[in-house]
Nucleic acid binder design. Structure first.
Lengths: 234, 234
DNA sequence: TAGATTGTTAATCGATTAACAATC
DNA sequence: TAGATTGTTAATCGATTAACAATC
């Protein structure tokens, strides 16, 4: 057993890796994959931080929650650190994933190359539109057939799916979510513009185009206000 | 001039609305739109917070940065608060937007209904694939033709575009970003899995499927570890 | 040993929360 | 006036940062 810097609460043992850190680990992972593919063997916190868009202090702090995987005076072994981050993120196992709602967005998600390359395997595509059921979609070079949502329970159970992606219209998202959760899915990536209701223990992450654009609009507005204030102050 | 709770620094005047608050405003906005459409005239912080998935204390704190728009003992006027949030977010003006990279994802983005309904107007679709140039895409009920990237500067200039969406493959994202920035785009929503290099003053938000899935995988892994620890502890 | 770079400390900063005075 | 609910305060919590001792 390694001694890791674990945060404790009176309630019990906690994960030990702060949320803010977990949210940045995929970025470090990606930077390291890119470096490894370029044949880089060794990297300093400064270099990896630059490549990832964070400060080196933050990077070292983040990595310190995973363990002590660098060498003072030298840096980090790229492959070794890559493995440690992949392990922390749970990428050393394969995660079967289902996608529900195969419109343009669902198609785009199914065809996303970064899916397979990171240990996620699309084991099912589902759509409520009967005209679409039976259609072939190319996923990571293989053809996957679109199934009826009626077949979802069987596939989720048999493949042990715990991660589901919802790319349906807003209207059916909650219903689909309920089906997923009922059959054992405990992590959901939601592209529909609704706040899904889920029982405790189920994680949901929502990705919303409108939200992102609105935040950009806010900052855009602020920039033009600042520009005006400055030209007035002149 | 209204006296607003503005955070100051020795350097000068700052925006006054914390980032964490800005990031939640779109959620409140959406909840209020939904309530307004259901004919709800008045809402308490408790109700709006529930609908938005936050605590009422956090909601009230967030709203307090915009101003004092509620009535003690009563609540918030839905339409009025909606307008104030829209104004704060910059949604009372129309933002012309261009989308570059019209594959499956670009198509999905172009067809997204929440675009137009929130004051974003797609004024240009661009693709580097000459076979795709000239193709019609339905955007908010209108047909928009896919243009060559060579035409981007002209359209960005003439429409005063300041927000761009990048939905290209990883390979061409930085190049496209450079073109956008060179012609005056100062906010970029990036769906390509690269960290874009931009000059100071340009805002970039990156949305990445792999990142989201990896964060879910982390939590999923932690849940199964906790379950195992519990069954061992019995 | 001298130079380089990690891992950790401690200070600072920003975000969250609970409680409640203000006020409808 | 009594009840309800906001807006604000102050305490707490978590994240960031700079600096540096440890150590290759």
């Amino acid at each position: 057993m390694s001694v890791s810097p674990v945060a404790k609460t009176p309630q019990g043992v906690r994960s030990g890796i702060p949320d803010a850190t977990v949210n940045r680990l995929p970025t470090y992972h990606r930077s390291l994959v890119s470096m490894a593919s370029r044949g880089i063997l060794l990297v300093s916190s400064e270099e990896l931080a630059d490549a990832s868009g964070v400060s080196s202090a933050k990077l070292r702090k983040d990595l310190s929650f995973l363990g002590s995987y660098g060498t003072r005076g030298v840096g980090y072994d790229v492959e070794f650190l890559l493995y440690q981050i992949a392990r922390a993120l749970g990428l050393t196992q394969q995660w079967p994933v289902v996608i529900v709602g195969i419109g343009n967005l669902g198609h785009a998600l199914a065809g996303y190359p970064g899916f397979a390359s990171r240990g996620f395997k699309v084991v099912g595509l589902f759509d409520s539109d009967d005209n679409r059921v039976g259609e072939q979609v190319s996923v990571a070079g293989l053809n996957v057939v679109i199934s009826s949502i009626a077949d979802l329970p069987q596939i989720v159970r048999s493949s042990g799916v715990s991660i589901g992606v919802i790319a349906t219209p807003e209207k059916s998202a909650q219903e689909v979510c309920d089906v997923l959760v009922r059959h054992g899915v405990t992590s959901i990536l939601n592209f529909a513009p609704v706040l899904l209701e889920v029982p405790a223990g189920v994680d949901v992450r929502r990705v919303d185009l409108a939200t992102e654009l609105q935040i950009l609009a806010f900052h855009e507005q602020r920039k033009s206000q600042l520009a005006m204030a400055e030209s007035n102050a002149g």
